[in-house]
Design a protein around this nucleic acid. Structure first.
Length: 408
RNA sequence: GUGCCUGUAGCUUAGCUGGUUAAAGCGUCGGGUUGUGGUUCCGAAGAUCGAGGGUUCAAAUCCCUUCAGGCACCCCA
């Protein structure tokens, strides 16, 4: 019986062309968040299970984490998200850190789920968090960053929609309609408002609140809170359109106030791509003084889907500058000029197969390498090498210093 | 975790009312007289038909199980 070549369920192999796209996405993220002054941090991929027990959502911890016992009998979890870890880090140095903290990370996070489009068992997730700003300026910045990332990847404003709401307002309205059990279960139902028929929502709500009709009507008709309205106006002034959505909830229990979501407006891919919000209580949960916090996360899988749906995937080719085609038995002699090129920061791959020239050139072309350098007895003797641009077909004879000057 | 659909060479597919050596295009590799690609011509390699079991004289074609993928639910940083 032979081994399977398939990657483990819900995970991916990144072949060079796949890795290129991931690198592109990560590069877009990094560029944008660093332009806002965010600093990169990291944390272990394994955490004690208790870190998530209290703070994430029950379902995720119980059924959707990779959890196991280590050799010392400790219960550990592969991180399903980054927020608890970063909160722990901040809580640990609560006193010595100088606020506001602007931090980001791009961890690989894991959830034991049934895979489908836009949802695998692992993905790379940008996490952007700001600690120490209680005012609405924090919300403004977060949404600006989310918008800037969408712009950076080439999305048009009509390709996506930013929705905002307030958990506080939602809580208030829910409580006013007579909660039977807990607010969290009501929120989970409201979160489905967009993709479930209204009658079904009413039925589901009836089991958890006294007055489902009244609750829905207040959400549909009473409009946003003054705080949400102010946020909307100030974003508008920055050229960012946001839609107040009173039924927007988000799944996590730890959100305390403003939440937001970026929606794909493409009818083929109509879904929330990513989002975040304010979670002021999390750092305090570690016994430290509470720190006002806001953040969001976005995954590479949903973003890649978005890029494909909107035809925004850039042509990404091999990063190698030069492909050295060897003519005859010159492998050893060719090393000196090639090394000189490499020392000048020109990346060079050598065709060491000894096959015919046309095959060597074809290989370079297929890899997407722009230039081919011919190295044969004549070139080595004269010190001038023919270099050909495979895109234009132009070929010229140059010395090594000339090549360095041209490509460097 | 629940339900439905799908699974043939690296890729896209044909074959599927069961019947000799499973077919094609693309891709890969080689060649078209010893130093030049993206077009073309010729040739080769490459599939125990996702895997396991069953029915049958005979299964890629029927049945069961399992694995993987897709869609919906659940959930959603």
């Amino acid at each position: 019986m032979s081994l399977s070549t398939q990657p483990y369920k819900g995970t991916r192999d990144f072949y060079p062309e796949d890795q290129r796209l991931l690198n592109y996405i990560m590069w877009c993220w990094t560029e944008v968040v660093e332009s806002f002054g965010y600093e990169q941090y990291n944390a272990p991929m394994l955490e004690p299970i208790e870190l998530y027990s209290a703070k994430t959502s029950e379902e995720i911890v119980n059924e959707q984490t990779y959890a196991f016992e280590d050799r010392g009998g400790r219960k550990v979890t592969i991180r399903p998200e980054m927020t608890p870890s970063v909160s722990r880090m901040v809580a640990a140095r609560r006193q010595e850190l100088s606020y506001p903290l602007r931090w980001y990370s791009i961890p690989n996070v894991w959830r034991y789920e049934r895979p489908q489009r836009g949802r695998l068992r692992e993905h790379w997730q940008l996490n952007v968090d700001m600690f120490g700003v209680a005012g609405i300026e924090a919300e403004l910045e977060m949404i600006q960053i989310a918008d800037a990332i969408m712009q950076r990847i080439g999305a048009k404003r009509t390709d996506y929609e930013i929705r905002i709401n307030s958990r506080k307002l939602l809580d208030k309205r829910i409580k006013a309609s007579g909660v039977k059990s807990d607010v969290a279960s009501v929120i989970r139902i409201i979160d489905r408002y967009d993709k479930t028929p209204r009658d079904d929502i009413v039925k589901m709500l009836a089991t958890v609140v006294d007055e489902p009709e009244k609750l829905l009507k207040s959400l549909e008709q009473d409009g946003p809170s003054a705080e949400v309205k102010q946020l909307q106006d100030r974003l508008e002034a920055l050229g960012i359109t946001v839609v107040t959505t009173e039924t927007l909830a988000r799944g996590f229990d730890y959100y305390t106030d403003i939440v937001f979501e970026v929606f794909d407006t493409d009818p083929e891919n109509n879904r929330a791509m990513f989002g975040g919000g304010r979670y002021d209580g999390l750092v305090g949960a570690f016994g430290a003084e509470p720190v006002p916090t806001i953040g969001f996360g976005m995954g590479d899988v949903t973003l890649a889907n978005f890029l494909q749906a909107h035809k925004l995937v850039p042509a990404l080719s091999c990063e190698t500058d030069l492909y050295a085609v060897l003519i005859g038995d010159v492998y050893d002699a060719a090393q000196a000029p090639i090394t000189a090129l490499r020392q000048a920061d020109i990346t060079v791959a050598v065709d060491s197969t000894g096959r015919k020239l046309d095959k060597q050139i074809k290989a370079a072309d297929k890899k997407g390498i722009k230039h081919v350098l011919f190295v044969g007895e004549e070139e080595l003797a004269s010190g001038t090498y023919r270099i050909k641009n495979l895109q234009t077909g132009k070929e010229e004879a140059l010395t090594i210093p000339e090549i360095i000057k041209q490509l460097g």
